[in-house]
Design a protein around this nucleic acid. Structure first.
Lengths: 264, 264
DNA sequence: TAGTGGTCTAGACCACCGC
DNA sequence: CGGTGGTCTAGACCACTAG
């Protein structure tokens, strides 16, 4: 065991230090090795015992300490890195990361599921559909992609018969030519696309805007109300796919995001 | 090689199928094995060649196909699972996941850094501070924690001399007793806490509200403007730490979130 | 019951980089 | 130069579960 770093301040029981459920910490005993070790080290960091910047023991030492092979420790360290809890540098070692930007996970569900999970009846009503050549506003989204035709759809999602959210969507017909043959009356563009288009990259922008006249009418708002606008642009391997802005009544809708230390 | 699943429809070159940079796909050739294999499989999924529900070859077959050991393939599959691209079930195999809930990563930066990254001068002004016993509203946040004292701080973050965002914060003095000795005039509560308190769990709620009178005045808004309100509740290993409400002028501030297929 | 994923090992080689 | 993390292997055992 090398001598650098402060000694491994884990209790050094005769069981070679593998964390057990018998202590005060809540660690399930019927876990895999790397899960228990991960939980143990996470606890050290989260509890503040190992503050930001604190050096972690080397892989070899951790392996010896927990009585496992280096590969197992390496797996744990990899998960800690991906969770943003530690940073690693060759020759130097591993260190508890400085909490820079908290990253939270924002789950964007299908609107139908979202509504039904509230025990409300879901409905969708197409308001308009038009095919047109990409114009000025659209081009900013299409970027340098050759300006072809786009499909513009607006629709209203209903929850329990009442307006839930207004959808304004643009579909790039160069990437998704099949969309030209759909009228999007029986099915909303979102689920139609997600069943067809594979995984992609997406950017979201969230902002608050005062409701304008059209939103007063469609979303049954009063002139003073605010709207939460979520804009999502989606790309594919072959280019821009769709851009959608969802306008929610701000007083009735909330976006939630959770944060967890590690990926698990 | 077992016979289930459609045959591995990767080009079966004499080089045993290890993806190279020579093809049409953009895969860096000087990558590690598991990165190249990961990129290869990701491409299969993202491009739609393997649609949702499509069965992946078994680990043994993939290992044989790529000419690597099963551990390497297993590492790749683990990353695909964590990226939400595939689902695995024992005895059945691995399948391309149905795109259910898109999950985006929301980065919560330090406000000072955020302002300075806009090339604006950052400033902070404390508006009020009071210590009080936890009352009705606070208790909902503290949950069943014993109701002790809380510190209530309001402050204004400035960008280029102009109001940027209004902060209303509650600090649980039972979890962070040290906060009682700070006046939070020279330093905002956010950075002070993050330099002191280790990593934790957090919940975010984002909504749009019409600006009220106080916000008109403090944020220099007109009566019609909307505000973007981000509420963050933070827990520690030892209990609730802080609850903060950030109110941004909705027309000037946007929250962005990105989505990537895999953790990489 | 047989085949799959999940896990773990003991060892190995290498690139990197501070000393 | 030496020690660290990064990677990869060949093999092993086990739990789970469809058939």
């Amino acid at each position: 065991m090398t001598r650098r770093h402060a000694s491994i301040d884990v209790d050094d029981h005769p069981d070679r230090g593998i964390p057990r459920a018998t202590g005060k910490t809540t660690i399930a005993s019927d876990q895999t090795l790397h899960r228990r070790i991960l939980a143990d080290i996470e606890d050290k960091i989260v509890s503040g015992a190992w503050p930001p910047g604190h050096p972690l023991p080397f892989e070899v030492d951790l392996a010896a300490h927990y009585g496992v092979s280096r590969m197992t420790v390496n797996k744990v360290m990899g998960q800690l890195v991906q969770g943003g809890l530690i940073e690693r540098r060759k020759r130097l070692g591993s260190f508890v990361a400085q909490p820079k930007a908290q990253s939270a996970v924002l789950e964007i569900h299908d609107i139908g599921d979202e509504v039904r999970s509230l025990n409300l009846e879901y409905g969708y009503e197409r308001l308009s559909l038009s095919r047109r050549r990409a114009s000025g506003d659209d081009l900013a989204w299409l970027a340098d992609a050759s300006a072809g035709d786009v499909l513009a759809i607006t629709g209203l999602h209903l929850a329990g018969g009442k307006p839930f959210c207004l959808e304004e969507r643009l579909i790039n017909l160069e990437t998704v030519p099949q969309a030209a043959d759909v009228d999007f009356i029986a099915i909303a563009p979102g689920p139609w696309l997600s069943s067809l288009i594979p995984w992609t990259t997406a950017q979201h922008r969230i902002q608050a805007v005062p409701a304008d006249r059209r939103e007063h009418r469609l979303l049954e708002l009063t002139p003073k109300d605010a709207c939460l606008v979520i804009e999502r642009r989606t790309w594919n391997g072959s280019g821009p796919v769709t851009r959608v802005t969802m306008t929610y009544p701000g007083n009735r809708h909330v976006v939630t995001a959770d944060f967890r230390p590690s990926g698990s």
